[in-house]
Computed example of a mutant assay.
Amino acid sequence: MARRKDPLPANSTEKDYRINTSLARGLSILKAFGPDNRPIGNAEIAARVDLPKATVSRLTFTLTELGYLDYDEDLGRYSLGPSVLTLGYDVLAQMEIRDIARPYLQELADYADASTYLGTPNGTEFIYVDACRTPASMAIRLGVGSRIPMASTGMGRAYLAALPEAEREALIARMAPEYGASWPEVETRMRAEIERAKTRGFAMSHGHWISEANSAGAVIRRTDGYPVYALNVGGLASIITSERLASDLGPRVLGVARQIEHIARGML
């Protein structure tokens, strides 16, 4: 599997003659919608992607004509259209890793009475491509397609710890502007967990993203050692305590990652 290059922001000043700016901006519009696909207007989209409202208006009109967005005339707002779903399902259908990982994810979810996820990196985030849950874990409603930050989650921190140092530092530098004044605190917690993950093989988050939830994550590596996917186990802190993560579920999620690596060898 070829190493994927992290996408540039739509308003990036980094120049590359091979990049079609209009296409990049159009795709950034689609990424502005959350997992709940809540209808939003041009002004909110413009704020999320940091583009002029006039530019966003042209792009949303085009995407609506092509079926990638739906427009509600009564609300004056957009939501993702069926053409986006077609693209997403086509990608998921090609991910054989999901079929390999699912029974192990479900077994871990059942054991932990928690949620387990398989994710793939995208910029400074992870995108969930598979999810397994138990009834007790339904309080936190995240599923396939949800995006989570690398800096404050077990899955993301495990991935950062597994990256080559130069690549990790470049990625961390891209995160800083996203957090503003809160970055020093976020960075301190993140780096401490990255260092621990280098030794024990899994990373944890103790309410650092969703305040009432804890998680632990580990990476799935290619045969050359480069991380290409990650998985995590997490849930309400009252069930998934920090002590349980450190002594039991963290080592278990690492063991699951190694099992998946072994079975998927030659495919990654």
Score class of each variant (00 low, 15 high):
73 E>N: 03
73 E>A: 10
73 E>I: 07
74 D>W: 04
78 Y>A: 00
79 S>R: 09
79 S>W: 01
79 S>Q: 11
81 G>K: 02
82 P>H: 14
84 V>I: 14
84 V>Q: 14
86 T>P: 01
87 L>C: 13
89 Y>T: 07
93 A>C: 04
95 M>Y: 13
101 A>R: 08
102 R>Q: 09
103 P>A: 07
105 L>A: 00
105 L>R: 00
105 L>W: 00
108 L>P: 05
109 A>S: 10
112 A>Y: 00
113 D>G: 11
115 S>Y: 01
115 S>V: 07
116 T>S: 06
117 Y>A: 10
119 G>K: 01
121 P>H: 08
122 N>R: 11
123 G>P: 08
124 T>H: 05
124 T>L: 07
125 E>Q: 12
126 F>M: 15
126 F>A: 08
127 I>D: 15
127 I>Y: 12
128 Y>M: 13
129 V>H: 04
129 V>N: 05
130 D>S: 09
131 A>H: 13
132 C>E: 15
133 R>L: 01
133 R>I: 01
134 T>V: 07
136 A>Q: 15
136 A>S: 13
139 A>V: 15
139 A>S: 15
140 I>P: 00
140 I>L: 14
144 V>P: 02
144 V>G: 02
145 G>E: 03
146 S>T: 11
146 S>D: 12
147 R>C: 15
147 R>V: 14
147 R>D: 09
147 R>F: 10
148 I>L: 15
148 I>H: 02
148 I>R: 06
148 I>Y: 02
149 P>I: 01
150 M>H: 09
152 S>P: 00
153 T>N: 09
154 G>Q: 03
154 G>D: 05
154 G>Y: 05
154 G>F: 03
155 M>Q: 07
156 G>Y: 02
158 A>F: 11
159 Y>F: 14
161 A>Y: 05
161 A>C: 06
162 A>N: 06
164 P>I: 11
164 P>G: 14
167 E>W: 05
168 R>C: 08
168 R>H: 04
169 E>P: 01
169 E>I: 02
